[in-house]
Design a protein around this nucleic acid. Structure first.
Lengths: 131, 131
DNA sequence: AATAAAGGTTCCAGCAACTGGAAGGTCAAG
DNA sequence: CTTGACCTTCCAGTTGCTGGAACCTTTATT
């Protein structure tokens, strides 16, 4: 299978696949005589796994760890567990941050009644202490 | 006032101030004879404004627009209004995304009962269709 | 006065995770 | 036989900084 087929099946741009290879996230595949990369069905699964992790905004570094954990089947899964828990923490914190942001911004958005910048409540609030 | 004083008063690293100057977000200040940047009280206010906007995760591009709007006092504040509304939208979308992420991750986090990778529910779910 | 520490300056590199584009080789179809 | 799609490599750019080297100036201490 050539790179674009893999790309299509895993729903990951070909460019990104080459990038993943470059940074060592996936191993370099065999090459055809013309130099084209040749992939196996196995690679589709691995790449889909990676895409799912990326959908969950797990960093490439952490994905590397997850992949490594999988290649050693008898290893304890503390690492896997920790990564997911960490991610959950990160996402929770980020969501809380965004909630605060949302409040600030919606307060700002409702504060512009005039139509001249000099009288604009938004800019006034952004300049005042409490914004 | 020298750059580190400005940095302290506005709570923005000196390095970042130079960067803002470089990309044209703030204008180049006067220089002392020794080449040091000399800032005025005015600059403190502008920089605090910028920091507040960054706290709200408004992009430097948009902050540029907000600053430009302010320098033309008689301009209508549609632009300001639009930027804030856009930001609000962006933040709302991002928060919703994070809520979904949080659900997925917390489902994953609770799915590991065994202590071998080969039996790890987390990895199984990440490999299965629905993850 | 000599020297050390603190604070300036410039420029270059790197982070994450790609993405775009140039320049060129290969392959199937009309 | 040429057009167009697909492959290759390599280089550059994105966002918003941040770290560090190499160097100069000012201030404090011995």
């Amino acid at each position: 299978m050539k790179i674009n087929q893999l790309a299509q099946q895993a729903d990951v741009p070909a460019k990104t696949i080459r990038y993943y290879e470059e940074i060592g996230l996936i191993k370099a595949p065999q090459r055809a005589e013309n130099g084209y990369r040749i992939y196996r069905t196995d690679d589709v699964h691995r790449l889909i796994f990676i895409r799912r992790c990326r959908d969950l905004q797990i960093s490439l570094e952490d994905i590397k760890t997850l992949l490594a954990a999988q290649s050693d089947n008898s290893a304890p899964c503390d690492k896997v567990d920790n990564i997911i828990k960490q991610q959950l923490k990160r996402v929770q914190v980020a969501r809380e941050e965004l909630c605060k942001l949302e409040q600030s911004l919606s307060a700002l958005a409702s504060s512009c009644q005039r139509n001249k910048v000099s009288e604009c409540g938004i800019l006034h609030k952004l300049h005042s202490e409490e914004a």
